[in-house]
Amino acid sequence: MTPFTYSRASDPQSAIEGVAANAQAKFLGGGTNLVDLMKMGVETPAQLVDINRLALTQVEELPNNGGVRIGALVRNSDLAEHQLITARYPVLSEALLSGASPQLRNLATTGGNLLQRTRCYYFYDPAFPMCNKRNPGSGCGALEGYNRIHAILGQSEQCIATHPSDMCVAMAALDAVVRVQGPQGERTIPFADFHRLPGATPNIETNLRPNELITAVDLPAMPLATRSHYLKVRDRASYAFALVSVAAILEMDRGTIRSARVALGGVAHKPWRATQAEKKLAGQQPNETTFRAAAEAELAAAKGYKYNSFKIELAKRAIRQALTTVATMA
């Protein structure tokens, strides 16, 4: 690991100042992704500003509107088990519990999870010469390489990596809002605008500005979000990243789908909100034909590569399966 200096911040302001003072500095959350990448030599920060002591560890009801605010340092385990989440947003709880292992979830933070980086093999091992994300302009090693875990939606020829988070897929479906604080003050970013598609600049992964600290994630009130399911398809029963995942929420009105919220994981450079599928579902009867139409519509623009074409059919089946599960819930 490349040597670095370490400091511990006591409040958001000093954390931001600490990072702003050194162009090579990074925030340190649970470290489950950042430290791994430092060991691999992918990340080489000159300084780490430890934010684990910041008082951003609460999950609380937002005043007046029934929503919930999640502090950036709430651990994945605590969030998954929090009564406000299990009662109001069970899909988020399911998504969190499907990710990583208990030990990792005990460390992983909400903010860190949002910013975890792709598991693309060619990104993760700097000995591979080509990776536009790691080294802009060097090419994409995955394009002609082993691309089984790569993207089928929204990718570019410059990068076909996926965002690996489960938590974020549920948050995308829930229309979460990311709260950030930077040298210029606080602002909010709607979830759909937080992560970016790769385009020609896969090295820029989010719309976070330099030195901005994530302070919280807000979930809007969603009284009917309990009819939901997070479905994760993976190579073993636990402790594996999603090949494809689906967060699905159906709002029903006397046997008809009033509105649907669907997001996909493992298919794109960002948590993929399945708006095409949602359109096909609204106002329809919850049956096989409807679900099939929704899945087909969402994957119509999908493109596969040598090793990952199976994801197109898999995603369709997963969408159908998740919707069927939700539709048949009591």
Binding site: R119, Y122, A127, F128, G141, Y146, R236, S238, Y239, F241
Partner: peptide, 25 residues
């Protein structure tokens, strides 16, 4: 164990990506 066929370098040389059964399996 999966080698990259251009370089001969193993792409999944770690226990997160080289899967062995976990208890749930």
């Amino acid at each position: 164990t999966i080698p990259d066929l251009q370089t001969g370098r193993i792409v999944n040389a770690n226990l997160a990506e080289y899967h062995v059964p976990v208890c749930a399996d």
